[in-house]
Amino acid sequence: MTNQHEKAIATLNRLIEVCQDGDRGYKNAAEHIEHDEIKTVLYRLSQQRALFQAELKDEVRKLGGNPDESPAEEEGTILGNIHRAWINVKEKLTKNDFDAILEECKRGDKAASLAYEAALKENLPEYIKEILIGQHHLIKGAVTQLHDFQQHPDA
């Protein structure tokens, strides 16, 4: 295994954790929000993050890595911020505060977006960058969609 493959595996494993946090965060939010249309969107976003994980795990395996290994703690700050953002979703859920739940979901995805931006600056194979660009675009779209729901919750 080349050094580039090892770095790519570590990067992808970090993003797998990011997607796991998003998957759990969106699922928790969906279970606690009363608005049916938004509940459906939140479940869809949870499933989307699960698909992102599966896609990234496949790429880790293709590179000869183990997708179940935790990433190195060198990116602890980014991962910690993402994890804390999704933990804050749990805290807001207990109050069933519509705007607060959506705001924390947006915050979690904004942190995820930063993790993707950092990954895209790394020396990764082009085909992996294409996958990450596509996922990153969808994450940014989710933030926009949640913002629109906050502006027009009955839409």
Rank of each mutant, 00 (worst) to 15 (best):
K92T: 15
E34H: 13
G65L: 02
I38S: 03
E75Q: 14
V89Y: 10
V89F: 03
L114C: 10
G141R: 01
K140H: 03
Q53N: 01
I38E: 08
E6L: 09
A8C: 11
A29D: 06
L45F: 13
E59P: 03
Q53T: 08
G64M: 06
L15N: 02
V18H: 06
H35K: 10
Q151P: 02
G64C: 05
H32G: 07
E103K: 09
H137P: 00
I133N: 11
L56K: 01
K106Q: 15
I82Q: 05
L63A: 02
I33S: 09
A115S: 05
K39V: 01
A119M: 00
A85C: 12
E104R: 14
A142Y: 04
L138K: 11
A119R: 00
Q135R: 01
Y26H: 14
I16S: 06
T2Y: 00
E75D: 15
L93R: 10
S113H: 09
A118Q: 11
D154S: 11
H152S: 13
A115E: 03
D23N: 14
N13R: 12
E122M: 08
N88H: 13
N96E: 15
A54G: 06
T144Y: 03
I9R: 00
Q145L: 10
P67H: 05
Q135C: 02
L12C: 01
I131D: 03
Q145W: 02
V18N: 05
L12V: 01
E126M: 07
A100T: 10
K39R: 15
L79P: 06
D109N: 09
E37Y: 07
A29W: 05
I82G: 06
L138R: 13
H147Y: 07
P71F: 05
L124D: 03
H137A: 01
G134H: 09
G25K: 08
R84Y: 14
I87Y: 09
K121N: 06
E34F: 11
C19I: 00
E75N: 15
E69H: 08
E34R: 14
E55P: 09
H147N: 11
M1R: 08
K95E: 14
V60F: 03
D21P: 05
P125L: 04
G141P: 00
E17C: 10
L15G: 00
A112C: 07
K57R: 12
K129E: 09
Y43E: 12
V41L: 13
K27T: 13
Q150N: 04
D58V: 13
I128S: 05
G25T: 03
E31I: 07
L114T: 12
S113R: 05
H137K: 08
